[in-house]
Design a protein around this nucleic acid. Structure first.
Lengths: 114, 114
DNA sequence: ATGTCATTTCCATTTTTTTCGAAATGAGGA
DNA sequence: TCCTCATTTCGAAAAAAATGGAAATGACAT
């Protein structure tokens, strides 16, 4: 993962409505949610929601798929995992004492292909 | 972790210089780095760097400590881990198929006390 | 083909964030 | 005490992001 992509992903999550939206999708799992349902749950106008969904999609954190008349949105778990790995890359100066068990101390290369 | 705190942390990381800075500290480990060294490594004016350090500190992602004439900055690994846990809270609708081994499927309560 | 419903685009406005030079602060060391 | 060096605050200007109503799009069903 490159720095630009990481900034895009973090910017996408760094907003009240988008963070709530992303967590909604993370919790919804494979089933996902339609734009309409999301707008209602968040209490945000459609035009605003559409703007926020586009940001998350541009950052690669959310995937969409048409289903009948609605469009279903899902969290992209692998993008999320890549972001976390990027943040913790080569952490703790190799001492593995930061508590990030899954990523700490692992060289970047090994993780990026996973 | 509350939503506001998570937005603050994500906003703090969602900026080119601050993300580079945080990763620098993550990789530096316990030894940390002085403000002066960071400014030089990032090629950012002191006043700008100070602004960015304050943002990261306000978000709880970075800790400071005076050492002789300089001030040493360190990444706050536990804040980072809490943020990741928040993002993945109750994920995948309980199916544990999103690859977030350490947090997926675990109820929020169990993790927050860890 | 036409109607209908879900979602997106457009636009102007408002709010928030970033920038950095110059001056101020603050903690040692001599 | 007084000097020096590291860092922070101030301030004002520039850049970027969020908002929401109204109009446009696009796909499905009849």
């Amino acid at each position: 993962m490159k720095a630009d992509a990481a900034v895009d992903a973090l910017s996408a999550l760094a907003q009240e409505h988008r963070l709530a939206l992303f967590r909604l999708l993370v919790q919804a799992g494979e089933a996902g949610l339609t734009a309409g349902v999301i707008a209602e749950k968040l209490g945000v106008p459609n035009s605003s929601l559409s703007f926020h969904l586009a940001q998350l999609r541009k950052a690669g954190l959310v995937l969409q798929q048409r289903q009948h008349r609605s469009i279903i949105y899902r969290a992209n778990y692998s993008a999320m995992n890549a972001l976390v790995a990027y943040l913790m890359e080569n952490c703790c100066a190799g001492t593995a004492d930061c508590g990030a068990a899954t990523t700490c101390g692992t060289p970047a290369q090994e993780r990026e292909s996973a």
